[in-house]
Design a protein around this nucleic acid. Structure first.
Length: 415
DNA sequence: TCTGGGGTCCTAGGACCC
DNA sequence: TCTGGGGTCCTAGGACCC
């Protein structure tokens, strides 16, 4: 019996989510755009074949998309998060030690006796997820996370099931370039090349101490992972996040403080609701206001930080502080394009004593009533601190699909 | 026309102290 | 020529990922 690491990865996740409710799109090219309809962030296989790259600005590929009758969607994160929860909950019930890594990926552990049995088990999981949630998922199984990531990539377009055993990996390492591995980007890749390290075999042949010295912790960890030693620890997914952010760019710039304040009210509400849902409080608040990357003002704007006298998850308290910071950052005559906040120093509310003269901790009746209504009726049914200027700061989402599963007004109707 | 938003981890270097 | 060196704490920014 040997312990292996599995990776489940949803195929073209955002596109697959859109297709669940639109069977007419199953064999058609589909893309999903980033928020504000800026760039392409998900592509169906048909679109990849057209040569449309990941991350390309939308306006640059508009023509080719039109010519090929590609279905275009704005991001619909309410929908994707909800579908993601369904995938993760289904998988969690079937595997050991699951750790959700991103909105569409999760690691788990598997004890393997006979490779055929392991393969069949992954096939069963793949079929189960497709039947229950409607999302195609591929699986990779290997000695460590980094190798499982690589394995997963091998069969994306085939069966969706890939098992790289220890023996198999020994045979592969000569031919796998370091630049294709998870965690190796342009900069690391270049530094490896400068030391004549091109393949996995090259790195494994190098002395571990020298690797650590030259390439730092990342290098040492990567080498260990490729050597079959599990070093990317399993975090078990129960810990709190270190930061929670909410930021967004505007469809058009604004020079109004009141518009910025209203956008911040939106971001504070979202982030604070997430804090309360995790039963946590934040001790640090950062407000960010930014101008366009193009034009004369791109160095203006910036961030301001506040260490809260008493950690809180109360929307009103956080908003008051955010507005204070916004007023110190604001300069009149500057066209702002983006605003947002970051919450830091996050800890469980259980460990916090309410300060005598500090803010409430955010479990007030008002906050929980608001959270319950918003959960039931859809996000933003009840809000604090904004109403008037919405068209001044919301972003562009001209192609958004209905929020089928999270908003009563947009539920799918048949007929 | 004008390139997302949300994260994590690591490192270099400044401030400060003795 | 050379101006102490070592520690800690903090933050900005780099790198990478989805």
């Amino acid at each position: 019996m040997m312990k292996y690491v599995g990776l489940a990865d949803c195929n073209n996740f955002f596109v697959s989510c859109e297709r669940i409710f639109r069977p007419d799109l199953w064999n058609r090219p589909v893309i999903v755009l980033s928020s504000n309809d800026g760039a392409v962030v998900a592509r169906s296989e048909e679109v990849k074949k057209l040569g449309v790259p990941m991350g390309v600005p939308f306006f640059k590929v508009r023509d080719i998309l039109k010519q090929n009758e590609v279905a275009v969607f704005s991001s619909n994160f309410d929908l994707y998060r909800d579908i993601s929860d369904r995938v993760m909950n289904t998988l969690r019930a079937e595997v050991d030690d699951m750790e959700q890594y991103s909105i569409d990926e999760a690691f788990f552990e598997m004890d393997v006796d006979k490779p055929e049995v392991a393969r069949n088990e992954m096939g069963r999981l793949r079929d189960l997820l497709y039947r229950h949630v409607g999302i195609p998922v591929s699986f990779g199984l290997a000695p460590t996370k980094t190798i499982a990531k690589y394995a997963n990539g091998l069969e994306k377009r085939g069966t969706g099931i890939s098992f790289v055993t220890k023996e198999h990996w020994q045979g592969l390492k000569e031919s796998v370039p370091l630049s294709e591995l998870w965690g190796v980007g342009g900069a690391m890749s270049k530094r490896f090349r400068e030391h004549s390290l091109l393949t996995v075999a090259d790195l494994l042949a190098a002395d571990p101490a020298r690797v650590a010295k030259i390439f730092g912790v990342y290098g040492a960890r990567l080498r260990a992972e490729l050597d079959g030693e599990i070093s990317k620890g399993n975090s078990h997914g129960t810990e709190l996040p270190k930061t929670i952010m909410s930021t967004r760019s505007f469809a058009k710039t604004t020079e109004e403080l009141s518009v910025l304040e209203e956008a911040l009210a939106y971001h504070v509400s979202r982030a604070a609701a997430e804090l309360r849902e995790k039963e946590a409080v934040a001790g640090r608040l950062v407000v960010i206001v930014q101008t366009s990357r193009h034009g004369d003002f791109f160095l203006r704007g910036g961030g301001g930080e506040s260490i809260l006298p008493s950690p809180t998850a109360d929307t009103t308290a956080l908003l008051k502080e955010a507005k204070r910071l916004a007023r110190t950052l604001f300069e009149s005559g500057v066209p702002y394009k983006k605003a947002g906040i970051v919450l830091g120093n996050i800890r469980s509310k259980d460990f916090e004593q309410p300060a005598l003269f500090g803010h409430a901790l955010g479990d007030s009746k008002l906050m929980s009533a608001m959270d319950q209504i918003n959960k039931k009726m859809g996000q933003d049914s009840v809000t604090i601190g904004r109403t008037k200027y919405k068209e001044g700061w919301t972003n562009r989402h001209d192609h958004r699909s209905p929020r089928y599963t999270t908003n009563w007004n947009e539920i799918k109707s048949i007929g």
